[in-house]
Amino acid sequence: MAIVAETSRFSKTGRPILAWIVGLIFFFPIFWLVLTSFKTDADAVKPEHLIFFTPTLENYLNMTENYDYWRFAQNSVITSVFATIFALVVGIPCAYAMAFNPTRATKDVLMWMLSTKMLPAAAVLYPMTFITKSVGLFDTHFMVIVVLCLINLPIVIWMLFTYFKEIPKDIIEAAQMDGVNTWGEVREILIPLAWGGIVSTALLCFIFCWNEAYWTVRLTTTEAATLSKLIEGNRAPEGLFFGRLSAVSAAAVGPIVVLGWFCQKQLVQGLTFGAVK
């Protein structure tokens, strides 16, 4: 009895407190980033101005004056949106085939797809740079979209596969008996039933695309450069201008944090792979 009472008391008060602590720990860097972005570069490194300082918009104004923030932002949106769309267009039929018409090879194919994520990106850096340059795709939207799509495809297919798996096979078969062709099955049954899962997958894929830095930084210069490149560009030549760097970073992660905030529910569902209903 005592144990039962204790656990329930813990789950009533202890658990929320713990959750808040963990939440704050995770949130702190973002908070610090935003705070620093309103300090002058000089204030940013002075301990006496750790918390108390005169806020300034100088960094943000500086950023929009010196760089074409909107172009970087636009590139991020374009590449992330199209990469996500392509990943879904390829991933939905692929996951559908594996979920409803599995063969002996299905498990191996899934594992193989996941295994491509284990290859260190650096291992193919030189060939990627060389190839994209020699075929004239270096620093193009098209190339960034293809790369973002491909690196996220395994996770997209895995997630969609787990969602599709939850749809009873009977329902798909009933639709076939009702005279539906394959495209009709996908449109009338699969997409509506797995809509939540598809949205979660799309959101997560979008976020991964937006945050991707390794390839977008290395395979672009100006034309197709995304916000990751903007941050990177601010770091290199000018050294430790923390205020400015923070402003750029905040402006880069801002949109995605806001998006994530509004889509919390979908994201939680997505990250737990449908385990929580």
Partner: peptide
Amino acid sequence: PSKRGLAMVFQSYALYPHMSVRKNIAFP
């Protein structure tokens, strides 16, 4: 199966959960 002109009733009923009864019946 879609072209054989047969109808099937499943043990699990296999209704379309996202459609109303009306839409289920109208579906074929």
